[in-house]
Design a protein around this nucleic acid. Structure first.
Lengths: 409, 409
DNA sequence: ATCTATTTGTTGTTTTAGACAACAAATGTG
DNA sequence: CACATTTGTTGTCTAAAACAACAAATAGAT
């Protein structure tokens, strides 16, 4: 008999859980009135009062007797997530490493993008991140509590120990990112795949908010990543590698993807191919979107090769989506990165192709939409990793020491 | 803000939850000693004592001062799931409808297979099931409590209202199976897809026991079905259609499956094709397995066409599995029906093909194995539907009335 | 300006279920 | 047969949610 499943619950668990739901409401909505907390949770007024007091004492929430626009009656106190609880977010990528500070309320306080040479080694990225964190830490307001460091990795991450198994784009193999960054910063570090975090963030704050079953597909220069929300919780898999939707085979073609698999979505829907047809060396997602949109509007012969490529990619993408619809029966599919541009190129056609390649029942109610969150997505997503641990057991969470020591370097 | 997620917990919830874990342990293991319950749950001895007493009073558990082989010390009481709590299980199929009675302890008390003409209508199947249930109900020991009726459907089921959306094999479309069977029997009826239930049962009692992330693929005469366990809970999707693993596209081929989709696993791995190459009109899984095994052993030229077909199917199956490995990163893949025979034909090759078509990290630890549970699989699986509701809130569950009335028909 | 209805915050009390401690009961062992 | 060990039982303790009563703060009506 497995033991994990059959662990009993005590009164302390109830308390932790209720503290957790209150803090989660604050985290996801910024600020909430006490009467809202009461009605949504279904708990008694006095219980909510008690819980909020405890969160205040823990330094996790602040209460203001602000204005709460209701019809009549005594106005309710507004409770907010404390701005003095923060997490560091790190996102190493091919040409730069981004580091930011995110508050428990979801605001990005600072963000720094540190350019590197192309394909930095893991050790280089770790040192850059550690340095930035140390500097930013010194600038924090006194009394600020640090929940930890969250890292979004463009590759496969073993969740158990924070080792980057493979990041083909960066050419990292078996890099113990988490352990080393912990060593350099003295802070607890959690890692996850960037697309998984993107999925989770769109689910928490963006286009997939309010749904319970979500498929997220992200297209970037490093390939196609994905994530899924299943019955309200993130798809992780045994070791954390789940959600590699780009590496699903959909055709016989020989062309292979960045991981060497052929006929996959990632092999057939390539950002580089689009750049090539537009004769661009590199482009931001906005620039690429503009090019694609220009093709959409221009119906003359001149844009034919580009149009054909876009349509071919769009069709491959739709085939992949159709399989995901059959597998997950999601309420919504969120497309991010340049996939969103492919979708906007011809929404009707994408929808039609998806329907044609999936079961009627599964596809009848599915929504397809573009991602909503922009450049702060990965900062907020990465910060969610340490915050998740805090949110799970608010009164037992131990913050990193805030005694700053003079760094020797 | 979604409301469901943020509902607070009360002391009553704790009680229900603890009653639930105790009853679940009894359900999954048959019988357990009180000391085991204590150590596994982590609850206090006196609490377990109290919980067991309540379950006894509810008629859900029985306690015997039996022999518990421990080293020394006072022997512990053995607690078992009550045999007088049962559920009906129903499984309509193309040529017969099977109805059974299953105890909370997991024993199949009775099973009846009622032959029908080929492709019976839903109404016919419902009437057959209702009649069998009524007869079996009359034969139950007095005092037996009925948790409800669970139905395993070879097709897509809308979980919310128990409507069979599509069962291509049976040619059922939009059949309100649940409502009608409830009407005829007066019992609460729950439905689910047969492969989903198969998955769940292998997870609870069979080849996938003890894992948290499972992919299950079933091959039968009606096509290829599937199911998945994600982080310990069943993949359902928005409406309950998730897990249609057979309808995932893996190749360009034109050949289409029973639902009209082309190039899918179901289109390329067909039981009928195997029967044809063996010149069989029909065959049980055992007979088919024997044929396939004969080919395996016979290396002469004579069996060439069969061997080629088997190998082609095996390869397509492996391609599908590889995609599922990338998507779910499961600990184990369970193959059932004739897929298990394909696997046994050449385990090494299936494994090699899966590895070749999936990411190294995702596939490195994955196990592939054949299903363990035999003919009672769907009976136990279907019964799990009503039992699940009982297990979720033991002291609030309302059993069907046991006052038997003389049936008018 | 005052009164009323309404809603919310606060405080003290009640209830419930798990934890704990002490003791009795039932086994194996030397 | 004394002893150690484990388990069941019983009475008490404790923490946390519910509850009830009252005070406070608003909008709207007069």
């Amino acid at each position: 008999m497995q033991s994990r499943e059959f662990v009993g619950r005590t009164r302390e668990d109830v308390r932790q859980f209720n503290l957790s739901i209150v803090l989660r409401m604050l985290h996801f909505s910024g600020s909430v009135t006490r009467s809202q907390l009461t009605s949504i949770s279904g708990l008694n007024r006095s219980t909510i009062s008690d819980l909020v007091s405890e969160l205040e004492e823990l330094g996790l929430a602040t209460e203001t007797e602000g204005i709460s626009k209701t019809s009549s009656g005594r106005p309710s106190h507004v409770v907010s997530a404390s701005d003095s609880v923060v997490a560091f977010a790190v996102n190493p990528d091919i040409d730069a490493t981004t580091v930011g500070v995110v508050t428990l309320g979801g605001r990005v306080l600072t963000k720094r993008r540190i350019l590197t040479r192309l394909q930095p080694s893991a050790d280089q990225a770790i040192e850059i991140a550690a340095k930035a964190i140390q500097e930013m830490r010194a600038e924090l307001k006194p009394g600020t509590k640090i929940a930890g460091v969250g890292v979004a990795i463009p590759g496969q991450v073993r969740l158990a120990d924070g080792v980057v198994r493979l990041a083909p784009h960066l050419n990292w193999i078996e890099a113990p990112f988490g352990a080393k960054l912990t060593q350099l910063t003295g802070l607890p570090v959690s890692l996850d795949n960037d697309a998984s975090l993107g999925c989770r963030t769109e689910f928490n704050f963006g286009a997939a908010r309010g749904f319970s079953d979500v498929v997220y597909i992200f297209g970037g220069s490093g390939g196609i990543g994905g994530g899924a929300i299943v019955n309200g919780s993130q798809l992780r898999g045994a070791a954390g590698y789940a959600g590699e939707l780009g590496h699903v085979r959909i055709a016989d073609e020989k062309q292979s993807d960045y991981s060497g698999l052929s006929g996959t979505v990632e092999a057939l829907v390539r950002r580089d191919d689009l750049l090539e047809v537009f004769r661009l060396d590199s482009a931001t997602d906005e620039e690429l979107a503009a090019e694609i949109d220009a093709v959409r509007r221009d119906k003359t012969a001149k844009s034919k090769p580009a149009r054909k490529l876009i349509e071919r990619q769009l069709e491959s993408m739709a085939r992949g989506i159709a399989s995901f619809v059959n597998i997950f029966n999601p309420q919504v599919i969120v497309l991010a990165g340049f996939l969103s541009s492919l979708f906007e190129f011809d929404r009707e056609r994408v929808l039609a192709e998806v329907k044609a390649n999936s079961l009627d029942a599964s596809s009848e109610a599915v929504l397809i939409r573009s991602a909503e969150l922009g450049s702060d997505l990965l900062m907020i997503g990465a910060a969610e990793l340490p915050f998740a641990k805090l949110l799970a057991r608010p009164s037992q969470f131990e913050f990193a020491e805030q005694k700053r020591r003079v760094s020797s370097s």
